[in-house]
Computed example of a mutant assay.
Amino acid sequence: MPSPEYSLSDTLERIYENQLALEAALMELTLLVEGQGNAEAGDNVRGALETIGENAGHIKQGLARLRAQEPD
């Protein structure tokens, strides 16, 4: 069985998907921590989540540009 080709854009797409999954998991934990009355920890995590969200847009745009440059 031949090994699959892993292009740079495919690899980066997987990293991006992992980032989104981690963001969702952190949000779930944030809601749990806040529900237990620890608002300060929740605020700290929300700050990190904001950075993740901002960077996600840049990553997605970069992936689109990279894919557009790849041969079909």
Rank of each mutant, 00 (worst) to 15 (best):
S3R: 08
S3D: 08
E5G: 03
E5D: 06
Y6H: 13
L8W: 00
S9Y: 02
S9C: 03
T11V: 10
E13I: 04
E13R: 12
R14V: 05
I15L: 14
E17G: 04
E17S: 15
N18S: 05
N18M: 09
N18C: 01
Q19L: 10
Q19Y: 04
L20E: 13
L20I: 12
L20R: 15
A21K: 11
A21N: 04
L22Q: 15
L22V: 13
E23K: 15
L26H: 09
L26C: 12
M27T: 10
L32T: 12
L32G: 01
V33T: 12
V33E: 07
E34S: 14
G35L: 06
G37M: 01
G37A: 07
N38M: 09
A41N: 01
A41S: 03
A41K: 05
G42L: 02
D43N: 11
D43R: 14
N44Y: 03
N44D: 06
N44H: 05
V45D: 00
V45Q: 05
V45G: 01
R46A: 09
G47M: 09
A48S: 12
L49Y: 02
L49D: 00
E50W: 06
T51W: 02
T51P: 00
N55A: 11
N55G: 02
H58V: 14
H58L: 15
I59V: 14
K60F: 03
K60V: 08
K60C: 03
Q61E: 12
L63S: 01
L63T: 02
A64L: 10
A64N: 08
R65M: 15
R65P: 01
R67L: 07
A68F: 04
Q69N: 07
E70Y: 02
E70D: 05
E70T: 00
P71E: 09
P71H: 13
D72R: 13
